[in-house]
Structure formats: structure tokens, C-alpha cells
């Protein structure tokens, strides 16, 4: 792996048991993602986008082949090692935001820093900076139930970005948002990608997201069918 290659997938396959048989969700994927990329895995529903993203995020393991994320072989990692990898180097953005409902915006963004045992003063500084990136400093005390969909997703971005991870994995981040909010969110992510050189990897079939991507990794029926760099 070169210094720039953060993610390397080799002959990656994933099977799910269905009845007495198996369903192959991913089939022999070979892929590498370099630092600072703003790329997306694109394909129709059921093509294996989320499965690939989950394996890269060490939330799942491959059935065959190998995935190397920041020098760690996902298939060989223990639960604790994969939790540490996610805690220290990965940020997640989910389609349904997945904010912790009893915490306010500030506390939601603060949560990953608590897991990293960062000091209170430094935490405050980092949380406020992250909220500034997404333009939500005025909503710090709001509960998730008081936020719009766009605001919720911006909180999720702040939560993913607050620890300045090497890689942000975003699973259909605009699926529940209207066009205005989608563009706002995407511009925020582009800005963070440019300013912090954070690698973004999306899973999407939303044209609005696709239009922002600098690299399009096309999946169909679990197979990588195309890989396009956009100038």
C-alpha cells in the first residue's frame, strides 16, 4: 500500500445466507481509494453499495478476499480492534441521520470525543468548530426532535467530522433530504474535503450527489462494472 492509498479491496466477496443457499452481495471487488478523494459507489438498489461501505467501515466482514483500511486487515480484526479503528479514524454519515435521541446537538457531536477520552476544554473547542463547519452553532442546545431533516444531517456530518477522521463514509446521505438541503449538505462536505483533505466515500444513487463526485465507482449485481475519474 502506498502512503496515499487508505483503502484497498482485493477480490472482495460477501455472501449472505438465504434459506439453505447463499446470496452473493459482492463479487470479486478490487478497489483502492487514496487520501483526499471525494468518491462514490454508485449503483441501483441491491447492487451492494451499502455492503461494500459497511465492510470498508469495519462494521461487517468479507466472506472472501481482503480489505485493508489504513493498514488494518478488516477480515482479521477483533471487535475491539474494529471499534478502535472506527473510533479513531473513521466517520459515519447515515441515511437516517442516527442521532442519539436523548442528547442535544452539542452532546451528539461530542459523543465520539468522549469515546476518545479527550479533555473537556479541548472537546468544547472541537465541538464548536465542527458545528461552525456545518453552520449550526445556534442549534447547539436543540434536541434532534426539534431539527429539520437537513439540520439533522448537518449534525451527523459534524459528528462524523469532529474528530477529524481520515475517512468519512456516507451511506445515501441525501436520501431523505430535499434538493436545497441536499446541495447545502454536499457543498459542506466538499468544503471539508478541500480544507481538511478528508477522504469521502459515498454510497448513492442520487443524481445530485453523483454530480459532486470526483470519482464514480459503479456497482451492479455486486460487481464493479466501471470506475470513472471526473476532471
Amino acid at each position: 500500500m502506498t502512503n496515499e492509498e487508505l483503502i484497498i479491496a482485493q477480490d472482495l466477496s460477501k455472501d449472505y445466507p438465504i434459506g439453505g443457499d447463499f446470496f452473493r452481495a459482492l463479487d470479486g471487488i478490487n478497489l483502492s481509494v487514496k487520501q483526499g478523494e471525494f468518491s462514490g459507489i454508485i449503483g441501483p438498489s441491491g447492487s451492494g453499495k451499502t455492503t461494500l461501505l459497511n465492510i470498508i467501515g469495519a462494521l461487517d466482514t468479507p466472506s472472501d478476499g481482503s480489505v485493508n483500511v489504513l493498514g488494518n486487515k478488516v477480515e482479521n480484526m477483533t471487535h475491539t480492534e474494529s471499534a478502535n479503528l472506527r473510533n479513531n479514524f473513521l466517520g459515519f454519515i447515515f441515511q437516517t441521520y442516527n442521532l442519539l435521541p436523548v442528547y442535544n446537538v452539542y452532546e451528539n457531536v461530542e459523543f465520539p470525543l468522549l469515546l476518545q477520552k479527550i479533555e473537556k476544554l479541548q472537546r468544547e473547542e472541537m465541538v464548536m468548530q465542527a458545528l461552525e463547519w456545518v453552520g449550526l452553532t445556534n442549534k447547539a442546545k436543540s434536541r434532534p426532535s426539534q431539527l429539520s431533516g437537513g439540520e439533522s444531517q448537518r449534525v451527523a456530518i459534524a459528528r462524523a467530522m469532529v474528530k477529524k477522521p481520515k475517512i468519512v463514509l456516507a451511506d445515501e446521505p441525501t436520501a431523505n433530504l430535499d434538493a436545497d438541503n441536499s446541495h447545502h449538505i454536499l457543498k459542506t462536505m466538499v468544503k471539508l474535503n478541500e480544507e481538511l483533505n478528508t477522504t469521502f466515500l459515498f454510497s448513492t444513487h442520487d443524481e445530485k450527489v453523483i454530480s459532486y463526485l470526483k470519482r464514480k465507482i459503479m456497482l451492479n449485481d455486486g460487481k464493479l462494472v466501471d470506475d470513472i475519474l471526473v476532471n
Binding site: A83, R86, N87, N88, F111, P112, L115
Partner: peptide
């Protein structure tokens, strides 16, 4: 359980 999944995704261990 979704909250637990989120916590695990954010880096909390199963034991945690």
C-alpha cells in the same frame, strides 16, 4: 437497538 448500532459505528466496543 438502532442507538446501540450507532454507538458501535461511532467506535464504542460491544463490551462498552
Amino acid at each position: 437497538r438502532k442507538e446501540m448500532g450507532t454507538m458501535m459505528a461511532l467506535g464504542m466496543t460491544r463490551g462498552g
